[in-house]
């Protein structure tokens, strides 16, 4: 298997139903000689999973016969939820996590303040009801908000758009 194929199959420690490729944080895999350079991008500046991801990549590639692995970080362009692949979105939905909508597009000028709850149309991943409400914009990890369905009453996680 190529190094790129091995790296693409490594899963995210916080969202284990997604591979790093599904999540869109795997930016490049370069083979040279017996060495591999993997370039990843953090989802959030303080993402505590980066070290585990680095270890998982190094371990998977070592097991696949690539003993020399270097993991590099790239900050720019910054990760956006738009990079989560269609397959990744399907896997999130299948796991009961509502996938993100399109990331907000910035108009020129200052970042607008949002005082009300988010107006996004986010359907319930359990019953499919169209109307859900935000409980909190910050959930078990920085990348997920907590919402509740107004029909079935079930809370669910939503990957928030950045």
């Amino acid at each position: 298997m190529t190094a790129a194929a091995v790296a693409a199959r490594v899963t995210d420690p916080e969202l284990p139903m997604l591979t790093l490729a599904d999540l869109g944080i795997l930016r490049a895999v370069d083979e040279s000689g017996d060495g591999v350079v993997v370039t990843i991008t953090p989802t959030y500046s303080g993402c505590p999973a980066m070290r585990t991801i680095e270890d998982d990549l190094t371990g998977a590639l070592r097991d696949a016969g690539y003993p020399r692995v270097e993991v590099r970080t790239v900050l720019s362009p910054a990760w956006t939820t738009d990079w989560i692949t269609p397959a990744g979105r399907d896997k999130l939905a299948a796991a009961g996590i509502s996938p993100p909508g399109p990331a907000p597009r910035r108009a020129a000028g200052p970042v607008p303040l949002t005082l009300g709850p988010s107006r996004r149309a986010i359907a319930c991943p359990q019953c499919g009801h169209a109307e859900t409400e935000e409980i909190t914009a910050f959930s078990a990890t920085a990348c997920r908000a907590l919402r509740r369905c107004t029909a079935c009453g079930e809370p669910f996680e939503h990957v928030k758009e950045i």
């Binding site: 500046s45 720019s76 990760w79 303040l113």
Partner: peptide, 22 residues
Amino acid sequence: PVLAAIGAKGVKEVTYHRDYAA
């Protein structure tokens, strides 16, 4: 470019912080 990249990443995060506080 490093400060510019840190800024671009931080904007997405601090937008949520400001909305929360507001």
